[in-house]
Simulated scan of single mutants.
Amino acid sequence: MMEERGNCHDINGWPQSLVGNDRFHGSNLNGVGVSSPLELTSSSSFSGLQAETEEKVKHYGCICWTSVIIRSDQELVEKLGCLPWDQEENSDDQCNIFPLEIKQDTPLRVLHRRSSDTRTRQILSLSARRINDHWIQLRMATSAGTYVKEFCHGDCGRTQPSISSLLGGRVDITELDCEGIEM
């Protein structure tokens, strides 16, 4: 059983800090850190956060392997209908098909805990670059709730369109980073 340290409960009896004030829990690559005191909150606080999730825009970076040989950045950009890696998102490129509406069935990897449904999501922007014949790097902005892994590999056709269907071959995502969230 955990030992109590002083009076660390609120008026409802909830512990207000389970970790000492001198603890540091690390930081991300941008230097944003998490430190104590950590606090327990009510479930109503959590539901308030959840209510806002549908309006968030999430930014991701990923590296993918593809069975399709990609000979140039230009070929990759044409197949995906996206922006070149070094081009601004606000650019009025005629071949840019983004924002792109996608349909996602509940992914196979979460089907055991989520109801089977088809959800409509938006890929708001996409830029890509070729690393070599089979490796590509993607940067995208998506509506909250988008299954990014499944957008890349297609999830056996359960996400349409996908990077896999746009390229016309198999795609495996090997690295995925959430690079930012717009509230």
Rank of each mutant, 00 (worst) to 15 (best):
I69K: 15
V77G: 04
H59L: 12
L83W: 07
T66P: 01
L111H: 07
N96E: 02
T53A: 09
R114H: 12
L83F: 05
I97T: 10
S72C: 04
S115Y: 09
S115T: 14
S67I: 05
D93R: 13
R71I: 11
E54D: 10
L100D: 02
H59F: 15
T106Y: 07
K58I: 15
C64P: 07
R114T: 09
K79Q: 05
E88T: 08
E55D: 12
V57T: 14
L108W: 04
K79T: 01
I70D: 00
I70L: 02
V77K: 06
L108R: 09
W65D: 06
Y60H: 00
R114S: 05
Q104I: 09
G61W: 10
V77Y: 05
Q74C: 07
W85V: 09
G81T: 07
I69H: 11
V77Q: 02
D105R: 14
P99N: 03
G81W: 04
T106C: 06
I70A: 01
C62D: 00
H112A: 10
P107Y: 02
L76V: 08
V57S: 07
C64H: 03
H112L: 03
I69M: 10
L108S: 13
D93H: 13
L49E: 13
E88P: 04
D86C: 10
Y60I: 03
P107C: 02
C82M: 07
V110M: 06
W65G: 01
L49V: 10
P84T: 06
L83G: 01
K56M: 15
Q87R: 14
Q87W: 11
C82H: 04
E78M: 13
S115P: 11
S115L: 11
E88K: 10
T53I: 08
L76G: 00
W65K: 11
S115G: 12
E78K: 14
I69Y: 08
S115A: 14
L76Y: 05
Q94N: 12
S72N: 09
D86Q: 10
K56Y: 11
Q94E: 12
Q74T: 13
E75K: 06
I69D: 15
K56W: 14
G81K: 00
E88D: 15
Q74M: 11
K79S: 02
A51Y: 04
R114E: 01
K58V: 14
T53H: 03
Q94A: 13
K79N: 05
A51P: 00
Y60L: 00
F98H: 13
S115W: 03
E52M: 12
E78V: 08
V110Q: 05
K56N: 05
I102S: 01
P99T: 04
E88R: 12
I102E: 03
Q87T: 15
P84V: 08
C82Q: 02
Q87N: 03
S67K: 06
K79G: 00
N96W: 06
W65P: 07
L80W: 06
S91T: 13
R109M: 04
